[in-house]
């Protein structure tokens, strides 16, 4: 087994892990009970799954500029996914679309 073979297989393993996390995100999206909990599923496993897929692609590509482009995609996603989910969560919160079961433990924690 040569080095390139090893890298190819490692890349495939990363792709597989990323795809598994995508599936977990989709299951969470379907099973979680309300908007805000679904946001958890939509941000964290999704971002990591995507990053793992990008690492897998990079391991199989091994060309400098491709890796740069993948890095660019990763940085964009790290910046945009939390910002997007923040916008959605805020819109839901301010229009009262959060589930009534949500609890709000006070506006301020320490009034000092």
């Amino acid at each position: 087994m040569t080095l390139t073979d090893a890298l190819d297989v490692l890349g495939l393993v990363f792709l597989l892990l990323g795809a598994l996390l995508c599936l977990a995100a989709a299951i969470g999206l379907l099973r979680f009970p309300d908007l805000l909990t679904r946001m958890h599923a939509g941000t964290k496993p999704q971002v990591l799954g995507l990053l793992l897929v990008l690492v897998g692609v990079g391991l199989r590509s091994r060309s400098g500029l491709d890796v740069g482009m993948l890095l660019l995609i990763g940085v964009f996603q790290l910046l945009t996914i939390p910002a997007g989910s923040h916008m959605v969560g805020r819109a839901g919160f301010r229009t009262g679309q959060v589930a009534p079961t949500d609890i709000h433990p006070g506006r301020r924690d320490d009034p000092a």
Partner: peptide
């Protein structure tokens, strides 16, 4: 979060703070 999503049993909720 992936584990919370796929584990059997009741799904978890959260709070706003």
């Amino acid at each position: 979060v992936a584990w919370l999503a796929v584990r059997p049993g009741p799904v978890s909720r959260g709070v706003v703070m």
